[in-house]
């Protein structure tokens, strides 16, 4: 079996003080060396391997790092440290499908396919299939701003599955569509599985995941709590949910607080040398100033 996705000790952390001035300093690489910074680790020390033809459910509570993980998989964001190897093209389907609201459905199909790097001829060939799959009738000629959220996710899903990705990442997009559409998507996804493609399915509901995944990852406060066969993972997950729901309110709050505190860490800024960069910058700026003075003195 071919390896499709490999995560090696992946960390993703976000800066916790959202002070604008800090960003500005970073932009001009002026921040103090070795200064301590408070960061939130949304994903920490995640390692796993996924092979061709596997469908993996990613489950976990709200804020457990599921979406960060799916964004990392889709290469929308880059890891802070660690390695991600992905063999093949990925396609992310999220509720906010990234459609241009002023263009109509057909134009959005063209635009999105184009941005996926599909050739003009292929777009022509694919468009009827996409329209048929989305199944939103004459609304396809309407601007997307008039769509309901269900229609948007239908169109987004239809485009994404037709761009022929090797790895499909579905981030709770199905929960917006009605059950008839969800059924259609499940059929399509099973088709994908049969073709040997890899699917990641992000959801907080263990039931949905169980329906068609054969493996699962349970994310818990940024870490992988359990990874393996779908039955094992969902049973421990559901046990945890049962245990957690039986706690008193104060115990729940304490548990959450302690877990979140673990995720907040202090880290040192990299001490990278910026001396040569500094000299280069001067070499670029100095002539501008020199000639600026000459212009003024003319």
């Amino acid at each position: 079996m071919n390896l499709k996705v490999e995560f090696k000790n992946v960390y993703k952390s976000f800066s916790m003080h959202a002070k604008q001035s800090q960003k500005l300093l970073e932009l001009f690489s002026l921040n103090k060396k070795g200064k301590k910074e408070k960061r939130f680790q949304a994903v920490r020390n995640v390692s796993f391997k996924v092979f061709e033809g596997e469908s993996v459910g990613i489950i976990g509570l709200n804020g457990s790092g599921k979406s960060t993980l799916s964004n990392l998989l889709a290469q929308v964001i880059q890891p802070t440290s660690g390695n991600i190897d992905i063999y093949g093209e990925t396609s992310l389907i999220a509720i906010s499908a990234g459609l241009n609201k002023n263009l109509n459905g057909l134009e959005n199909i063209q635009l999105k396919c184009m941005m996926h790097g599909i050739s003009k001829e292929d777009i022509k060939r694919l468009t009827p299939d996409i329209v048929k799959f989305a199944d939103i009738g004459d609304h396809i000629y309407q601007p997307v701003k008039n769509y309901s959220s269900g229609m948007k996710s239908r169109l987004g899903f239809a485009i994404a599955v037709h761009t022929d990705p090797d790895i499909l990442i579905i981030d709770e997009a199905l929960s917006v569509g009605d059950s008839t559409f969800a059924e259609k998507c499940l059929i399509k996804m099973n088709e994908f599985k049969e073709k040997g493609k890899t699917i990641f399915f992000v959801s907080h509901s263990a039931g949905q995941v169980k329906r068609f995944c054969n493996k699962a990852i349970w994310m818990h406060y940024g870490e992988i709590k359990s990874f393996g066969d779908i039955q094992e993972v969902t049973s421990v997950y559901q046990e945890f949910i049962k245990w957690f729901n039986n706690l008193t309110e104060t115990e729940k709050a304490r548990y959450k607080k302690e877990s979140l505190e673990e995720q907040a860490v202090l880290s040192h800024k990299d001490k990278n040398s910026r001396d040569t960069a500094f000299l280069k910058n001067i070499a670029v700026i100095l002539p501008v100033i020199l000639f600026g003075v000459l212009v003024v003195l003319q």
Partner: peptide
């Protein structure tokens, strides 16, 4: 020429950064 060189140096600096 001074002014033309100034303009291009300025543009180059912008492009570089």
């Amino acid at each position: 020429m001074t002014y033309t060189i100034y303009f291009w140096l300025f543009t180059f600096a912008l492009l570089y950064f």
